[in-house]
Design a protein around this nucleic acid. Structure first.
Length: 207
DNA sequence: CCTGCGATTTGCT
DNA sequence: GCAAATCGCAGGC
């Protein structure tokens, strides 16, 4: 059961373009976060279209790297296009994309997908029968459904097992809504959460 | 529909 | 020692 973007066309789903390369990620996190909406994310036999992201950057008190470069935050300061997966509340894994060049702390949290491939395996991993809109509608759910693991931190997102693919080149630009980030206590006012307008697959409605 | 709470691990003070 | 980029369940309206 391989997730091949070329097969992602059933159910009115988007088709996807080529794999995103390192240069895509070597930009400010808000640009990357916005441009990731509508892109494809596939991992270990499951995936779909990204519908919700959040940007975190240097001098942003909500960013893990705000405390400086430590063993945990080293990856965020490192080269772009690497995965940063960490454990939240001792239970849930969170998947981030590292952006900007080596030496600058910046990352994008991927919060929700519209599932398109591997619906059955996602349900198995999520542990119970679920509606499609409850499979990947949150950062913890997404990592569980796609089997994204902590030890994949530092891995390159343009290599297996990742398939991070561009929006279809002939697709119209999706309508994107920005608003405050979710679940944080610092930097609450910054509107650095990006959602696909009208999507039913968000962790929360876009307001 | 909504609100509150417990689970469970880790990194940093 | 404590706070944390969450989730699912219980209970009330």
């Amino acid at each position: 059961m391989t997730a091949s973007p070329s097969r992602v066309e059933a159910d009115g789903a988007l088709a996807f373009g080529e794999r995103l390369g390192e240069a895509f990620f070597d930009r400010p996190p808000r640009d990357v976060a916005r441009d990731l909406i509508g892109c494809g994310l596939f991992h270990d036999g499951a995936g779909g279209a990204i519908v919700e992201t959040e940007a975190y950057e240097r001098d942003d008190p909500a960013c893990h790297a705000y405390v400086g470069r430590t063993e945990r935050t080293d990856v965020i300061y490192g080269p772009p296009g690497r995965a940063y997966v960490y454990l939240c509340y001792g239970i849930h894994r969170m998947f981030n994309v590292v952006t900007e060049s080596n030496g600058t702390a910046a990352a994008v949290l991927v919060r929700a997908l519209q599932p398109q491939v591997g619906l059955e395996v996602m349900e198995l991993r999520r542990g119970a029968p679920r509606e499609a809109q409850d499979l990947c509608s949150g950062p913890g759910k997404l990592c569980e459904a796609l089997a994204i693991e902590l030890d994949e931190t530092y891995s390159r997102l343009w290599e297996p097992p990742w398939q991070l693919t561009a929006r279809q080149t002939d697709a119209s630009t999706p309508e994107i809504v920005a608003g405050p980030r979710i679940g944080i206590t610092k930097g609450v006012e910054l509107p650095w959460r990006y959602c696909l307008a009208g999507s039913r697959f968000l962790s929360r409605s876009a307001g």
